[in-house]
């Protein structure tokens, strides 16, 4: 059985200016996600995690590397309407900004009908809309509401519903809960766990927050300045980190007996030993 998602050798760099060497934003990163599996991608700003997400989904062209969904390779751009529609059903994305990722003119109902009519015209659209609302936990009364009338959590649920409407094999979430209140965040994480268990969708969960990633991922990929420094099962990474950068990330998270002074110590140790 093939992996839901397979990424090999993803690399991306940007030119910075005349005479300066290009900045490598993602350096030869590979990973795979089984159906129903979940990979967390953790890093701070500049780690390349969002770039990886965009390359996997097809919004950004990698300099080199390949992406496959369900065993089938996905070139960056494919011509033709049929090809585009097929691609849309392979992998979808939920973005960080709950309001910005919705078309503000469309009500909940119109937004869902819009996706369904274009990408699943043979389905019973009325029933699908209802099913999707139930799946993501949106009350039917919200159908005529427009984005500005919805709360942050409701907006993200709608975004997830739109993504699920095409029945994708993989769902990429780019800091999808970072802009939500903690209590709402917990609900969305629970929803995501439900979805991957019920629908066998593979998840790629990008976040700067290790604790959040810990709640929703089987495996964790820790990114630092474009390189994957650790890639192991979540429980192992969080209990016994191997790389000093992961240690530093873990020490930064507040909790009982927290000593933030340790972070500066770790950073000093880390930058000494880090590869240039």
């Amino acid at each position: 059985m093939s992996e839901a998602l397979q990424a090999t050798g993803l690399t991306k760099s940007y030119r910075t200016g005349r005479g300066l060497s290009p900045v490598v934003v993602v350096d030869d990163v590979s990973f795979s996600v089984p159906p129903g599996g979940s990979l967390g991608v953790v890093g701070e700003s500049g780690s390349g995690k969002s770039t990886i997400a965009r390359m996997v989904v097809g919004l950004l062209k990698p300099d080199s590397g390949e992406v496959s969904v369900d065993g089938r390779k996905r070139p960056y751009r494919e011509r033709g309407n049929a090809a585009r529609l097929r691609r849309a059903k392979e992998i979808q994305m939920v973005f960080q900004d709950p309001y910005g990722s919705l078309d503000r003119r469309l009500s909940v109902e119109r937004a869902l009908r819009d996706v369904l009519s274009r990408l699943r015209p043979d389905a019973d659209i009325g029933r699908e809309v209802g099913d999707l609302m139930d799946r993501v936990g949106l009350a039917r009364q919200l159908l005529p509401s427009r984005p500005h009338q919805l709360s942050g959590g409701q907006r993200q649920r709608l975004a997830i519903a739109k993504a699920l409407a095409v029945a994708p094999s993989v769902l990429v979430l780019d800091e999808a809960v970072s802009a939500l209140d903690v209590s709402v965040q917990a609900q969305i994480l629970a929803l995501l766990n439900e979805i991957r268990h019920d629908l066998d969708v593979g998840l790629v969960f990008v976040s700067h927050d290790l604790a959040v990633v810990g709640e929703v991922s089987d495996e964790v990929l820790v990114m630092y300045r474009g390189k994957a420094v650790e890639h192991r099962p979540t429980a192992d990474v969080l209990r016994r980190p191997e790389h000093p950068y992961t240690e530093m990330l873990l020490s930064s998270a507040p909790g009982p007996g927290w000593e933030p002074e340790r972070v500066a110590e770790l950073r000093a140790k880390f930058t000494e030993t880090a590869a240039p």
């Binding site: 903690v182 209590s183 965040q185 917990a186 994480l189 927050d209 290790l210 604790a211 959040v212 810990g214 709640e215 429980a235 969080l238 209990r239 016994r240 240690e247 873990l250 998270a253 909790g255 009982p256």
Partner: peptide
Amino acid sequence: FTDPKHDYTRALVAAAPELPEREEVR
């Protein structure tokens, strides 16, 4: 965090994701 008294605080505590205990001190 360990002994919240108000329901709302309890809800916040319950919702906040927590890191597991570290196994060994390096």
